[in-house]
Amino acid sequence: MFGLRKWSTPVLRPAGPFIVGGVAVFYLVAKMQDAMINSDEYKNDPRNPAVAAGKKDH
């Protein structure tokens, strides 16, 4: 009764678009965050985490 069955339940195929969408959103948000941190408006702001980490390439 339990164990391997004749028809296994598909998991990755129906969830594939959601996984790809999640990865794309994660990547795009990370790129936007990096662009905003390195913008001229926040380049020398003391609240900028890149300044606090000691990045000198600003």
Rank of each mutant, 00 (worst) to 15 (best):
K43A: 11
P17K: 05
P49D: 11
A50F: 00
V23Q: 08
A30V: 10
G21E: 02
Q33R: 14
N44Q: 14
K43R: 14
N44L: 15
V11S: 07
A15M: 12
A53R: 03
S39G: 11
L12P: 00
K6A: 05
Y42D: 03
K31I: 06
P10I: 02
A35H: 09
K31P: 00
A53V: 11
K43S: 15
V29G: 08
E41L: 15
E41A: 14
W7M: 00
Y27K: 10
D45W: 03
G22M: 01
N38C: 09
S8M: 09
N44F: 13
M32Q: 11
A15K: 12
D40P: 07
W7H: 01
G16I: 00
G16E: 13
Q33W: 14
F26C: 12
N38V: 00
D45A: 12
A52W: 04
G16D: 06
D40C: 07
D40G: 14
I37Q: 05
W7G: 00
V51Y: 01
I37E: 08
K43Y: 08
Y42A: 04
N38I: 00
Y42F: 13
G21Q: 08
N48M: 03
M32L: 14
M36H: 05
V20G: 06
E41R: 05
V25R: 12
A53P: 01
V51H: 01
A50T: 01
K6I: 07
N38A: 08
T9Q: 06
S39K: 12
K43G: 04
L12A: 15
D40Q: 15
S39L: 10
G16H: 13
T9R: 06
P49A: 15
A52S: 09
D34F: 08
L12M: 15
W7P: 03
Q33V: 13
D34S: 13
S39C: 13
P14W: 01
Y42W: 14
K31H: 10
D34P: 00
Y27G: 02
A52D: 01
P10W: 01
P14Q: 07
D45Y: 03
N48S: 10
L12V: 15
R13T: 09
V11H: 06
G22Q: 08
A52Q: 08
T9I: 07
D40A: 13
D40E: 15
P49E: 11
V20K: 08
N44T: 10
G22Y: 02
M36Q: 11
K6H: 06
M32K: 10
T9F: 04
K6G: 04
A35G: 07
A35W: 10
W7N: 03
T9A: 04
D34A: 12
A52T: 01
P14R: 04
P14N: 09
N48A: 09
